[in-house]
Design a protein around this nucleic acid. Structure first.
Length: 204
DNA sequence: CCACGGATTGGCT
DNA sequence: GCCAATCCGTGGA
């Protein structure tokens, strides 16, 4: 895989932005998770912004609780929550302390450690290529493939074992802006962003 | 204390 | 397309 040095890790300041501004900038970034001696990596291809204060769909809308505590930190932490009795979803906390904003990672394009991801998701590897995109084309699928769970909640994203790398520049005209998925409140906000025509996006 | 339902997924119809 | 699976945070009694 491409070289990883502390220098190439995306710094703290990057995360201290408004979620709706930051979300499209996360597209094309490389999500890295160190697992034992190996690195699982993937290009972020789909995200959703959840903003504190004015967003009824955000977990933080009704104030601080044990579950959403990490979301009230300043930007640069990983917020992981458990849902539907069986799935985890991962978010990148952003903005100022006590703002309560985060960006849900909905899909990545697998790069390194694909056989490990296959093991994590399906318990076996060397799956047909046609099943490749099923690895990470959804928020809970991504967490399963990258072995992200409750214990990863609150990790500092500026160091191992989980951080982001710069990746490739995504042009404005390659980004699709649309409504978020699976929520019942604030359904009209155009706060979902994905890379146009990327096969790993969860839903058009 | 208890009942509800969710930022989902996958299997079956 | 429909719906069960399965946990636990949250909110109302």
């Amino acid at each position: 895989m491409s070289s990883i040095s502390p220098k190439t890790i995306i710094p703290k300041e990057f995360y201290l932005q408004d979620p709706v501004k930051l979300a499209p900038k996360l597209l094309g970034k490389i999500f890295v998770r160190k697992l034992g001696d190996i690195y699982l990596t993937g290009k972020i291809v789909e995200v959703e912004a959840y903003r504190g204060k004015d967003d009824e769909a955000a977990h933080t809308y009704n104030g601080k609780t044990k579950r959403n505590d990490v979301m009230f930190r300043e930007g640069g932490f990983l917020y992981v929550y458990f849902t539907y009795g069986m799935h985890f979803c991962a978010n990148i906390v952003c903005g100022k302390k006590n703002e309560g904003s985060a960006i849900l990672i909905r899909a990545v394009e697998p790069i390194d450690g694909i056989n490990i991801m296959e093991m994590n998701r399906f318990g076996k590897t060397e799956l047909p290529y046609s099943r490749r995109k099923l690895l990470t084309n959804g928020p809970a699928k991504f967490c399963s493939a990258f072995a992200i769970e409750k214990k990863d909640n609150g990790l500092d994203l500026t160091k191992e074992p989980i951080f982001l790398l710069k990746g490739e520049k995504i042009l404005k005209n390659e980004i699709v802006t649309t409504t978020r998925i699976g929520i019942k409140k604030s359904v009209d906000l155009l706060w979902r962003f994905y890379i146009k025509d990327n096969p790993y996006v969860s839903k058009k």
